[in-house]
Design a protein around this nucleic acid. Sequence first.
RNA 1: GGCGCGGUGGCAGAAUGGCGAUGCAGAGGACUGCAAAUCCUUGUAUGCCGGUUCGAUUCCGGCCCGUGCCUCCA
Length: 490
Amino acid sequence: MKVYNSATRTKEEFVPLEGDNVRMYACGITVYDDCHIGHARQAIAYDMISKYLRFKGYKVTYVRNYTDVDDKIIARANQLGVNAVAYAEQKIRESEEDLKRLNVKDADRKPKVSECIPDIIAFIEGLIEKKHAYVSKKGDVWYSVMSFPGYGKLSRKDPDQLLEGVRKDLEEGKKDPRDFALWKSAKKDEIFWKSPWGNGRPGWHIECSAMALKNLGETLDIHGGGKDLIFPHHENEIAQSEALTGKPLARYWTHNGLVTIDGQKMSKSLGNTLTIKEALRKYHPEVIRHAMLSRHYSADVDISAKEFALSEKSLYYFYKTLGDIDAFLAANSPTSEKLTVCDDISANVKSGFVEAMDDDFNSSLAISHLFQICKFVNTLLADKKQPKGAVVVAFQRIRDDIGNAYAVLGLMQEPPGMFIRALNLKHLEEAGLTEEKVQALIEERATAKQKKDYAAADEIREKLDQLGITLQDSRTGTTWGLKLGALPEG
RNA sequence: GGCGCGGUGGCAGAAUGGCGAUGCAGAGGACUGCAAAUCCUUGUAUGCCGGUUCGAUUCCGGCCCGUGCCUCCA
């Protein structure tokens, strides 16, 4: 298995530090507002990675932290007149609900800054002792960037060049503009903890170093986070942790790509953030996961109504095929006959998935295999020459392998009928129709068809078609479903 | 300005030192009262200029364009 390591800029064979144990840390969120689709992407990316590692048989300990002490949280809490930690706690609960609906499995440990203050203080004390940090008169503790020779190695930044463009007016007690805060002395109306340097709270970067050390030890196998965190956050984590322990912080640095909306970066000022809650109101959770996973985790993904519609359409096809498999399996029994097709894909579902995912978690490629599998299934269903018992055997295998393998991506995990019905009902609602109305129209059309009044029958179908509902005639009657042809513009 | 990442058909998106997946959309066909669904067939792409190489979309250099970070950011 290969993993792209941002630190070396190469794909490397994945070898954990200790046998089958994988220690994985991903920078979680600062909980000051509703989680947006970018947070979802990060969570889904590391959800997929941890699930795949487990699928491969590794024993994974996955830690994802919460920053519940931070300027923005304090500002928001003060505005609302509530306790900052309590406010953060509320936002943590909400974010967990959002992610749970997206079928993101909880990390094994979810440390919070507010619960790790003693560990953070101890970490800082260690850095002061080793002369990598200093205390100002005010009671701030600063990390001395130039005391760490490797500073800039992850982000490829030259400390000398970092000096340019940096604010000239040094904060009180700060010796070098590049230094960053490990401990911030308490300002008025701010939540604080006691420390050897007076009342205050931890800086942002130190949290992750301390929590990773506490929960996973000196060297992580995989460290993850959004690529926007490479500098300064991850660079600073390295400076802190490696200065203290003298060991590499992580064997593999991974970075997930960011989400843009209609080609633009999401930001509060542009007013184009899409929260997870909003997305879930419009799209099925698996549709959102599909949209996130149909590009490689390290690439930026652009989201638009068109992208979601495309994901919806793909999943509709997959699920419809799975539904047809289930119907076939319910009606037929396995035999020891053999298929006569020359290319039996049923044996390769799992290996195709593994091959794709072994190459730096190529979920995009893994998903594309589903199209070939579904095409194979549909071909078998139409091929009346194949012995049914043999088709059953092939289908059982395909069904099991898809269910097991694609659980890693959190896709194809619903009963097909339920998924399709949910999608259909959503479109029905958008079209301003009800099931009863559609059913009545279907019956009206059936009567017209019986009278061979095809013009009237077609008129009804045309009317529904314009509303995005398609009628499908079969021997057993007429069913309705969402119209798949049209994608929204843009 | 500094540092990084990327530019693949109409769109989305993999991969690769030699034949460039897959999906959507388009075209044609089978099926159908007509459709839909499904299946079959099919056209269209590696930003530009050099270099290395028998051969480059892939490796190297330059340019152009886009984008991220350099301040909080998943």
